[in-house]
């Protein structure tokens, strides 16, 4: 897992609409990266649905929210529509999991990101991280607000 205080590795990934999004584009604003295993899996659905409910409060603290998984932009688009969420979903698809690996979140066995939160500050440094004990659990939104307090 990447350590607090390190420079967050830059990346350019496609979002659910196929648009390129780079970490540098968030500079000057905090961003919370939500690494998750797979679109449409039950726990990931619960996690992103729950965070959507408090997205205005997260954004009010000057934080952008972005999910990242190894799924394609097309899958992300369908997942977003299924959940009725507008959270940006980034596609760590090819090379598979490259960004998750750079952040120390990738699980080689199942070939997916572990459920991990990484808060990056306005200057591109890692400000806080959370790694779930296992991919079947996700942290409540309170944990995010504790980190932002």
């Amino acid at each position: 897992m990447i350590a607090v205080g390190e420079s967050a590795p830059d990346f350019t990934l496609r979002d659910q609409d196929g648009e390129e999004v780079s970490l540098a584009s968030y500079r000057g604003r905090k961003v919370l990266l939500v690494f998750y295993p797979f679109d449409f899996s039950p726990v990931c659905s619960d996690q992103l649905s729950l965070y959507q409910e408090v997205k205005p409060e997260i954004e009010a603290k000057g934080v952008s929210l972005a999910g990242i998984s190894v799924d394609s932009p097309y899958a992300h688009k369908a997942f977003q529509a299924k959940l009725g969420i507008d959270t940006t979903l980034l596609s760590d698809f090819e090379p598979k999991g490259e960004v998750a690996r750079a952040y120390g979140s990738y699980l080689d066995g199942p070939g997916m990101a572990n459920r991990t939160l990484v808060l990056i500050d306005e200057d591109g440094k890692v400000a806080w991280t959370y790694e779930s004990p296992n991919p079947g659990e996700f942290p409540g939104a309170n944990v995010i607000f504790d980190a932002l307090a």
């Binding site: 619960d46 996690q47 942290p139 409540g140 939104a141 944990v143």
Partner: peptide, 12 residues
């Protein structure tokens, strides 16, 4: 009510 649940860590 929802917010007290969020603060208590309710996820599902």
């Amino acid at each position: 009510d929802f917010e007290t649940g969020i603060r208590a860590g309710v996820t599902t």
